[in-house]
Design a protein around this nucleic acid. Sequence first.
RNA 1: GGCGCCGUAGCCAAGUGGUAAGGCAGAGGUCUGCAAAACCUCCACCCCGAGUUCGAAUCUCGGCGGCGCCUCCA
Length: 484
Amino acid sequence: MALRVYNTLSRTKEPFQTVAPGEVGMYVCGPTVYSKSHIGHMVGPVIFDTVKRYLTYLGYKVSWVVNITDVDDKLIVQAQKDGTTVKALAEQVTADYLDCLAALNVTGIDHMPRATEHIGDIIAINEGLIEKGFAYASGGDVYFDVSKADSYGKLSHRDPEELQAGARIEPSSLKRNPGDFALWKASKPGEPSWESPWGPGRPGWHIECSAMSLKILGKHFDIHGGGLDLVFPHHENELVQSESFTGVPFASYWMHNGLLTREGRKISKSDPDTIVLMGDLLAEYQPDAIRLLLLSSHYRRPIDYGPTRLGEIARSLGTFQHAFDRFKELTGESFDALEAPSRRADEVSAPAEVAEHRRGFLEAMDDDFNTGGAVGELFEIVRILNRTAAGLAPTSDLADYRAGMVVLKELTNILGLFAKPPEKAAANDALTGDLMALLIDLRARLRKEKQYALADEVRNRLTALGVTLEDGPEGTRWRVEPKR
RNA sequence: GGCGCCGUAGCCAAGUGGUAAGGCAGAGGUCUGCAAAACCUCCACCCCGAGUUCGAAUCUCGGCGGCGCCUCCA
């Protein structure tokens, strides 16, 4: 089966075909950096990071751009409130954003351009659009004239006339039509501004994405992504101004991820109760739990966030972590260090049962990146491996078991999961190991003498410290528990 | 009002024409001094009503319920 991708433009799943053979250009709208990242900001990055991982696995050379919008009305207002500059605020918030991406193992971003670094490009597009008659200058502003583009509305599937009728009427407007949108805004004194043919000003909201995608990926590229809430007006406007400027199709595929809700309400900066800052979340949960939550259903569906849900996911992660521990016991190898194929092959040298679920995983991914279905196959594989491991000893023939584990590595790499061992709730160094050996040895003597009350107290008190003891036939295992 | 999306077990969720993946929770079992982990088993007439079909969770129509966008938002 070949990859199919849902395209907002056509509202159907289409076979995936690139502009240039073997190459993919992908642009995803990043944040306007005026306040720290909440979990909603991570949905797009995690999903498109996974999209890039899968495309790379299929053999494509992917170039992925995520922009930073670092000049905007809201930045100006927030900087004034904080008594700082727009520049300083943008830098601070951008740093927080980058930390969150790194924590969630979003590693695939190739370019992260800032709007303020592309003012010249933005002005050039303004000039081009005016020259071609799609835009007009008015009182220091520049507006896109939506009546000049007959395809306006094709992405959000809206009737241009209704858009006109529904648009907000601003009393002091310098617009010709109510639906026109600003490409360039004259700045007031004290606001960040750049010289332009229309006087000092700054970019409108949508134009920076056109400028940066055009500059880095070219006129026609493959995938444009973002949250569902950006379809209108942001992407519609970006699309119309880009195609009007270049005269060629803009992005081939428009992919929109569903939005995160919290107890049924959309997470949004205008609804402060819903905000869950990433920094707070990362302090409490393993990053893999957050990543798995975001990938556990299809990307176009809404995801409801709740602490209960994240706790459940974290618990299910334990199944994998225990399997990795068992793997290390049997083979001496660390799952993290396993080398797995990074390119798709049809055949795989693993037990048939594992290979079957691997096929299921890849079929799910081929079907518009159905990570929810893919995750289900992962649990099947880990169960098979655990069942196998139960009958094995370090002296057994471990080839099939190891081959199955390599498949698990191959597939979890595609989802960007388990890239590094989970953060532990307590320190775990050589001395700890020696101390634990000592405790376990003493406790074994207690158990031998049937002093179970004392033996259980040792175990319980260790549990309280985040250390779990498991008595098995080959002796007692111990592990430091990860964060939730 | 316009344009869409969704309704699958207690909760989350895949499947979208051939008789219901998976996770969490729960029940029973194997193992264990007990526990934990792991494994095995059990747990759904797919919101309602019509229709199309040999056959529908899946397609069509009509309800009911929830959500998003149309205004800043990832």
